[in-house]
């Protein structure tokens, strides 16, 4: 263990599984996961607000758990399954959280929304029937400058409802 990469290559090949699809790109090790998603994969659904972990806009799911993509290097994300907002539904076939945001007016400018959608998706997977207080607590790590949060909290409760309704429909089928 002496050849200490003082001469390490300036770039590395990074292979990531994002929304079920594998992608390889050659990037510098300092490439943040958020930038890898946005710049290298052109998945611009993940937004970048503060780049120090505070706003939550860049939150993605790593093996199902919400994490800040601005506080992770792409090179460190390689063994994990990454889910971005693009993986949680489409305009024609919205996921339950997206549907709830539409119904409850949970967004205005939409800048913060991807981070909320990922965070709430993971939250209701663990808490299928949250109270409004639990909902408020669940989104306390994400900032929104537009909505005043009330409708976002309602959307959390509604998203849980939609998830249960859809599960019932599937069960009935």
């Amino acid at each position: 263990m002496t050849d200490l990469d003082q001469t390490a290559p300036a770039t590395v090949d990074v292979t990531l599984r994002v929304n079920g699809v594998e992608h390889t790109r050659t990037v510098e090790p300092r490439r943040l996961l958020s930038d890898f998603l946005r710049h290298d994969l052109r998945l611009t659904g993940t937004h970048v607000g503060c780049e120090h972990g505070v706003c939550g806009a860049c939150t993605v799911l790593v093996d199902g758990d919400p994490m800040r993509s601005c506080l992770m290097f792409a090179v460190s994300a390689q063994e994990h399954e990454i889910t971005t907002v693009e993986g949680l539904g489409t305009q024609d076939s919205m996921g339950p959280v997206q549907q709830a945001f539409v119904e409850c007016h949970g967004l205005q400018c939409g800048f913060c929304t991807p981070g909320f959608v990922t965070t709430i998706t993971a939250f209701i997977a663990e808490n299928p029937d949250p109270t409004i207080d639990e909902a408020r607590e669940a989104v306390s790590g994400n900032l929104c400058r537009c909505t005043g949060y009330q409708n976002i909290c309602k959307a959390v409760v509604r998203a849980a409802e939609i998830t249960r309704e859809r599960a019932d429909e599937d069960g009935a089928r």
Binding site: G53, G56, P66, M67, R68, L71, T119, S140, G141
Partner: peptide, 9 residues
């Protein structure tokens, strides 16, 4: 300690 997303990592 911080918010869940920070605690996860």
């Amino acid at each position: 300690v911080a918010h869940p997303a920070i605690r996860n990592r």
